[in-house]
Design a protein around this nucleic acid. Structure first.
Length: 263
DNA sequence: AATATTGTTCAGCA
DNA sequence: GTGCTGAACAATAT
């Protein structure tokens, strides 16, 4: 579930809780999420250190340490962060627990093994290695760049939005929402999406992500006319009274309105 | 009890 | 090489 808005909410959460506090001890409870960094390397790097600032690129969270290194977290489909005081409040599937000198703890929880814990010295290098496209919410990601990235692309518009090498941050849920609001059928080939529609899609996508962040990714707080709070087959479309349908598009379950999303 | 879910990776194909 | 699709992966809910 964690797409760009979810990870941004995690980033702010960490920023308002765990920043600048002295790390007494760290516990890495599952080595299977490591890719480049080794167990000892992570633990030693964190112990005695401090979180200084945070960044995000797409669905990746970067936590800069005081010594210049950066902790990298990816949340897969089930990951989240929790800051808590009492040990008995520890989350159930904690993979990494940080004990702070103030007695509080921060845990990275991930029920499944899809996710990642890593260290890097440079976000730029990491992004390059992962072959990530520009972050969809970054200031220099504009309409021109969006159109440029879609140009010449084969496959579906939904597939292009979800492709992290094209642009980083959008997954199944928010690609559905953006296409729903832009009135474009998710399975439409990219080259069949007219320039005016692409421009509208860009604006819609940015607005959707921005509102999702504002509303703390709680669908019940989303404005009227959003697909997400009622994303299931057979539901009534909150925009036009059509029916919500489900189809497999670019390998994922796409939900769309059969009436107002033009093929 | 089979199926759906979610994001990323990778084999395979055009 | 490139880029896209679809299967595989984990672990749970329905």
């Amino acid at each position: 579930m964690p797409e760009l808005p979810d990870v941004e909410v995690f980033r702010r959460y960490l920023g308002s809780t765990a920043l600048h506090k002295k790390i007494k001890k760290s516990h890495l409870l599952d080595d299977r999420l490591l890719e480049n960094a080794g167990h000892q390397q992570v633990v030693r790097r964190l112990n005695g250190n401090r979180f200084q600032s945070t960044d995000r690129h797409g669905k990746y969270l970067f936590v800069h340490l005081k010594d210049g290194w950066t902790l990298v977290l990816h949340f897969g489909m089930t990951g989240f962060l929790k800051y808590y005081k009492y040990k008995e409040d520890a989350s159930e599937h904690a993979k990494l627990i940080i004990d702070f000198a103030n007695g509080y703890h921060l845990s990275y929880d991930n029920q499944r093994r899809l996710g990642r814990i890593d260290l890097t010295e440079s976000i730029g290098d990491f992004v390059k290695e992962q072959d990530l496209g520009p972050d969809v919410m970054s200031d220099d990601f504009d309409q021109e760049r969006f159109l440029e990235l879609l140009k010449g692309r084969r496959g579906t518009i939904k597939g292009a939005l979800m492709n992290q090498s094209v642009m980083a941050g959008v997954g199944n849920i928010y690609s559905d929402e953006a296409l729903f609001q832009a009135g474009i059928y998710p399975g439409r080939p990219v080259e069949k999406v007219k320039s005016a529609e692409q421009k509208k899609l860009f604006r819609t996508l940015r607005r959707v992500l921005s509102i999702a962040i504002d509303k703390q990714v709680d669908p019940s707080r989303f404005p009227r006319g959003y697909l997400l709070p009622n994303r299931k087959p057979g539901a009534d479309c909150p925009r036009c009274g059509g029916k919500i349908r489900k189809a497999t598009i670019s390998g994922r379950s796409a939900y769309y309105c059969a009436r107002h999303q033009r093929k």
